[in-house]
């Protein structure tokens, strides 16, 4: 005899809860997190070097966190821009998650940061499933990668608020069929903007900075159709099969974990985030230290320690 316990929980609910809390906390401090996804070798770091320098030149306080399986080479390159940079080594793990990211921000992220760029692990599969607490997700692809990549990695391209094409200075030399690429993008993410860039010539760098700063100013983001999934987890659940199995329990406590998948309802979720960090005005640089909660708890409360330290 067995009994069936009905539950209704997104497998990544814990990550999504932590990501939502982090988004709310960053939002309260006036920091926008930009999650950058791409394959290895797409030119993400080279472009980010230019973007950080361009933002710094405009007097916008930005910071960058870069994740790699190994080596600190990327952090060294990004640090040349003069902005705060932190390297995260995932030790072989194929993606960043919200808890990992949060632990690296605590005690490091300067309090006045307007934009935090997170350079995710070079991989178009796994990182797509993990909400990091970003307000804006940007997927990058270089012209050397093939026009059908949006179809091969629909989650990476379909959940992005902005797509960035890199290395466009060599597009002609490698025979990149841009029209076919844009058609494939439109298929999985109708209406998303594709921005052409070149880290070598600087093309598109200022526009990319403009797009990010528009978000910090409260601009409206593109809403990817895939991210706007009706959210079956929200729906009423009736498992008819359960009734024929011995005892049948509804587990109310598990019925409504935070069901937001990556990319879903980001703005709304941030806006609903309770607690002092989301309240009016800016939270002091030591963060919402009075909020109770444990790091890594799944109760939706943000950790007790603040994220911020004063910028040196």
């Amino acid at each position: 005899m067995c009994r069936v316990v009905d539950v209704r929980q997104a497998v990544l609910a814990k990550n999504d809860t932590l990501a939502g809390a982090l988004r709310g906390e960053l939002d309260g401090r006036g920091t926008v997190l930009v999650n950058l996804l791409s394959s290895p070798g797409s030119g993400k770091t080279a472009l980010l070097e230019r973007v950080l320098a361009a933002a710094a030149a405009r007097g916008v306080p930005v910071a960058a966190l870069t994740a790699d399986l190994a080596t600190e080479n990327d952090a060294r390159r990004l640090a040349r821009s003069g902005v705060p940079v932190r390297q995260v080594l995932t030790g072989g793990l194929c993606h960043l998650d919200a808890a990992q990211l949060r632990s690296h921000l605590a005690g490091w992220l300067p309090g006045d940061t307007r934009v935090l760029f997170v350079e995710n692990v070079g991989n178009l599969v796994c990182p797509a499933s993990y909400d990091l607490g970003e307000t804006m997700r940007v997927t990058l692809m270089s012209v050397t990668e093939g026009e059908d990549k949006p179809l091969k990695y629909p989650a990476a391209f379909g959940l992005a608020h902005l797509l960035v094409l890199t290395k466009t200075d060599i597009a002609a030399a490698v025979g990149f069929a841009e029209a076919a690429f844009r058609e494939n993008v439109a298929r999985v993410n109708p209406g998303v903007e594709v921005l052409n860039t070149s880290a070598r010539t600087g093309d598109g760098v200022e526009t990319l900075v403009d797009r990010v700063l528009a978000v910090t100013a409260g601009g409206v983001l593109h809403r990817p159709a895939m991210a706007e999934a009706a959210g079956d987890v929200h729906g009423h659940h009736h498992d008819a099969a359960g009734d024929v199995h011995g005892h049948h329990h509804h587990d109310a406590a598990d019925g409504h974990g935070h069901p937001h998948g990556p990319g879903s309802g980001r703005q709304d979720q941030a806006a609903q985030e309770p607690g002092p960090a989301a309240g009016p005005g800016r939270v002091p640089a030591d963060g919402p230290g009075a909020v109770p909660g444990r790091n890594g708890s799944d109760d939706g409360r943000r950790p007790a320690d603040g994220l911020a330290v004063p910028r040196p």
């Binding site: 067995c2 069936v4 316990v5 539950v7 497998v11 159709a225 999934a229 009706a230 199995h245």
Partner: peptide, 16 residues
């Protein structure tokens, strides 16, 4: 503008 289904990744029941 949105999906009705296809992005699910959820536990629906356990049998004990």
């Amino acid at each position: 503008e949105r999906l009705l289904s296809g992005r699910e990744l959820e536990i629906t029941a356990i049998e004990l």
